[in-house]
Design a protein around this nucleic acid. Structure first.
Lengths: 137, 137
DNA sequence: CAAAACCTTATAGTCGGCTTCAGGGTTTGA
DNA sequence: TCAAACCCTGAAGCCGACTATAAGGTTTTG
């Protein structure tokens, strides 16, 4: 299969597939006599794994680490699990932070809504902007 | 006040302050006879606002829009509120996505933990890696 | 009076994950 | 047969928010 077919079958563009090969997430493809890349079904599966892992928030670098371990024939389960656990901690941290952001933003909007529009005539005193208290929980 | 003092008072590095001036988030600073930037307390307040707005997840571009409206003397409250509301929607979307990611990741880890390490001897069958089902809720 | 510590500018690099461009060669189908 | 549609490479650009580097000028401190 040529790169275009692999692209349609996986929904990943040829440019991106070449990019993955460049950075090492995909192994160097076999070549046809004319120089075109040649793929089999394992490439479809590998790209599928990459997509799924990405949608779980893993970076290409992390995915590459896992795939490299596999390619090296190492027993990866332990490493993979600890990497995933590490990643879960990070995702939880991001969730926390985003919740706090949401909270601040909500307070700020409430504060802004309660303002009398008449108070907005003096640009140096726009209360939304100067309502910094709203930021400080 | 010179840029270094402004930096210590706000916790924002001189380079970053100059960067903010470059992109227009800070107005062009007044200059001393020797060419050094000269600031007063309003710069401290403006940087404080920028920090607070950033910690609520606003981008510098959004912050710049608000500050430009203020600098133009417009009544900003309406615009500011609708921008904040728009941003809240975006934050909620991000939260949703991150929750889904967390869920997928949790499932994947559970699946990986239940595997018999003895099954990891065949690198072509690492079950964590091939456990794609875990990704598909 | 000299060195350290500050200030200036413009430019380039960082991160991640691509996308686009320029400038070619090859294959396919009407 | 010849143009469209595919393939190739390497390099550059994009997003956001900085950070670093180079190569100077000025001011403060011991």
């Amino acid at each position: 299969m040529k790169i275009g077919e692999l692209a349609t079958r996986t929904g990943i563009s040829p440019q991106t597939i070449r990019y993955y090969e460049n950075i090492g997430v995909l192994p160097d493809a076999l070549r046809m006599p004319n120089g075109y890349r040649s793929y089999d079904d394992s490439a479809v599966r590998r790209l599928g794994f990459i997509r799924d892992a990405q949608s779980s928030g893993l970076t290409l670098t992390e995915i590459q680490m896992v795939l490299e371990m596999r390619d090296a024939g190492e027993s990866t389960c332990g490493h993979v699990v600890s990497m995933l656990e590490q990643h879960l901690i990070e995702v939880d941290r991001q969730l926390d932070e985003l919740e706090r952001t949401r909270h601040r933003l909500g307070q700020l909007i409430t504060a802004a809504r309660q303002m009398d529009p008449a108070n907005c005539t003096d640009p140096d005193k726009c209360q939304t902007i100067s309502a910094k208290e709203a930021f400080h929980d």
